[in-house]
Computed example of a mutant assay.
Amino acid sequence: MHSFIPPERFFPYLSWTDIEAMSNKENVVIIQPVGAIEQHGPHLPLIVDAAIGMGVLGKALAKLEADIPAYALPSLYYGKSNEHWNFPGTITLSTETLTATIMELGDSIYRAGFRKLVLMNSHGGQPQVMQMAARDLHVKYGDFAVFPLFTWRVPHITKELLTPKEAAQGMHAGDAETSLMLALLPEQVKLDKAVAEYPPAQPEDSLLSWEGKLPVAWVTKDISKSGVIGDATTATKEKGDRILESVSDGWVQVIREIYHFRPPQS
């Protein structure tokens, strides 16, 4: 049931008496991985985002100092994935449903006495949902520190392993995600079906972009026929192993810092 998570770090394996007796509960770090079940091209399974979140978190928790209390909740597999719903197999929640789920989950964690919750989101289509829910939880509970974090935003070396074009334009199911899946779930990767497909280029003098400071709203079928936005053909397990080590190292740093974080006194 714990998947990649070390069993001693898996929150559901605790009993209610374990939680009631837990000391320093206000600084225990509770981590909610949030993924998605959505298309990732013809070569990757629907579970990519959820698998990456659990894989990275499990590796990080295994490396984390034993005296830092941090626990993973079960992955929230479904997310807001309607940008991919033209591709069969994608399952999506609405913004309202995902927000309500995060809010009610936060209510339960707070009621149990915890005061630090990390929303570890691995799906690029929903960071804003995490940010708004986190803000609303903190407004509701003034002493609740909620951290809406994106799995790929910690320090890591991934871009150093990619071509300049992939580093700039690869957004979905490309080299990085495919390499990481080769490290985590290699038997689920069909590398012989990998393709390279990039979105249509914007004019050189355009201020707009598909992703960036001034984006335009899009759904995947607008910019990709295969569902891939990037180059999956250059992926390797060796790169995936290095990405996993680097991103999980970044998460060790972040979890450690959150444990020591003390919110300002209001």
Results as ranks from 00 to 15, higher is better:
Arg262Gly: 05
Val34Ala: 10
Ile243Gln: 07
Lys25Phe: 07
Leu64Gln: 07
Val34Met: 12
Thr163Ala: 14
Ala50Met: 13
Ser15Cys: 07
Asn24Gly: 14
Ser224Pro: 02
Phe144Asp: 00
Ala62Val: 02
Lys165Ser: 12
Val56Lys: 13
Gln265Ala: 14
Asp107Leu: 04
Phe4Arg: 07
Ser226Lys: 03
Gly55Lys: 09
Lys165Pro: 05
Gln32Tyr: 05
Leu207Phe: 11
Pro6Arg: 09
Trp251Pro: 03
Phe150Leu: 13
Gly79Leu: 06
Val195Tyr: 07
Ala36Cys: 10
Ala168Arg: 15
Ala36Asp: 02
Ala168Leu: 15
Ile157Leu: 15
Val154Ala: 12
Gly89Cys: 03
Ala196Ile: 10
Asp18Met: 01
Arg256Leu: 01
Tyr13Phe: 12
Ile5Phe: 05
Val252Pro: 01
Asn121Gln: 09
Gly113Cys: 10
Arg9Cys: 01
Asp205Asn: 14
Thr92Asn: 04
Arg115Met: 03
Asp107Val: 10
Phe11Gln: 00
Lys159Thr: 15
Gly125Lys: 06
Asp136Gly: 08
Ala72Leu: 03
Pro69Lys: 06
Leu73Phe: 06
Leu93Gln: 02
Ser108Met: 06
Arg153Phe: 13
Pro199Arg: 03
Thr101His: 08
Lys237Ala: 15
Leu64Pro: 02
Ile31Cys: 13
Pro7Gly: 00
Val189Tyr: 02
Thr95Gly: 04
Leu182Ala: 03
Met1Tyr: 08
Ala196Lys: 14
Val219Gly: 10
Glu166Gln: 15
Leu161Tyr: 15
Ser122Lys: 05
Met103Trp: 06
Lys221Phe: 08
Gly240Met: 06
Phe114Arg: 00
Asn24Met: 03
His260Ser: 13
Leu57Pro: 07
Tyr13Leu: 14
His138Trp: 06
Ala173Pro: 10
Pro33Tyr: 06
His84Cys: 00
Ser108Leu: 08
Gly53Val: 02
Pro45Gly: 07
Ala112Thr: 10
Phe10Arg: 01
Glu166Lys: 11
Gln265Thr: 15
Leu73Val: 04
Asp175Tyr: 06
Leu93Phe: 07
Gln253Asn: 11
Met171Trp: 15
Asp136Glu: 14
Ser246Leu: 05
Thr236Asn: 12
Ser94Ile: 09
Glu160Cys: 12
Met181Tyr: 08
Ala51Ile: 12
Gly240Leu: 04
Ser224Ala: 06
Phe261Ile: 07
Asp67Trp: 07
Tyr71Pro: 01
Glu257Asn: 13
Val189Met: 05
Glu83His: 11
Gln126His: 07
Pro42Ile: 11
Phe147Cys: 10
His2Leu: 04
Pro7Met: 02
Glu187Thr: 11
Arg115Asn: 01
Ser246Val: 05
Glu83Ser: 08
His84Met: 08
Ala232Lys: 01
Gln188Met: 14
Thr236Met: 11
Pro42Arg: 08
Met120Asn: 04
Val216Phe: 14
Leu73His: 00
Lys59His: 10
Glu177Arg: 09
Lys190Gln: 15
Gln188Ser: 13
